[in-house]
């Protein structure tokens, strides 16, 4: 929260405040689809991300710069390069890919140990809820041991980047975080 607060204070007075949000998660989790959904773009043709995509989204008088970084194993070591001034971390999970819950939990645990992410609020999107085999959000929270993350606020949001369901609720959480630290 502190990072968010300080950036907001720093930008006080400027007409539009800017925040840096990073989207991470394993390959195939649905990050790029989600980013396109957030930017109200077509979501039908999406290929695995080799590097990164960046989009600016305007919401509630804020400019959110959202970085979507590829999740393939070979790219993951580069995640850390993008974390410098992160105000909020969005972590995306394929809720139907139960085989990889442990791996994604481990990646998240290693990430959050990074100094630059200390105390940074975490929004977990439990994506692909439209699939019948999707695990419910509570189960994922349990599987990722989210309760052991006591040094930051976290929220888990069930969603489908494909249909758009739940995506807005996640954004509402983000803006309620931002709005309340404005003063």
């Amino acid at each position: 929260m502190r990072a968010l607060l300080s950036i907001i204070q720093r930008l006080k007075g400027s007409p539009e405040k800017e925040l840096c949000i990073v989207l991470l998660g394993l390959d195939n989790a649905g990050k790029t689809t989600l980013l396109k959904r957030l930017a109200s773009e077509e979501v039908s043709t999406i290929t695995p991300t080799q590097g990164f995509n960046i989009k600016s989204i305007h919401s509630h008088g804020f400019k959110l710069n959202v970085w979507d970084i590829g999740g393939q194993r070979s790219i993951r070591p580069y995640w850390r390069k993008y974390l410098g001034s992160t105000d909020l971390l969005i972590y995306v999970i394929d809720s139907a890919d139960q085989k990889r819950f442990e791996e994604t939990g481990q990646e998240l645990a290693e990430l959050t140990e990074e100094e630059s992410l200390m105390g940074v609020p975490l929004l977990v999107f439990a994506n692909k809820q439209d699939l019948l085999t999707a695990a419910p959000a509570a189960e994922i929270a349990e599987g990722l041991s989210l309760h052991t993350y006591r040094d930051r606020e976290w929220q888990i949001q069930a969603c489908s980047a494909l249909s758009g369901e739940g995506v807005q609720d996640g954004m509402n959480w983000i803006s309620s975080q931002i709005m309340n630290r404005k003063k």
Partner: peptide
């Protein structure tokens, strides 16, 4: 908690997680 903290108690989103 928002009120206790001196922040506006309006504009709250449902918590599906943890804050402190």
């Amino acid at each position: 908690v928002r009120g206790i903290q001196g922040e506006s108690p309006e504009d709250v989103a449902p918590t599906v997680g943890f804050s402190k």
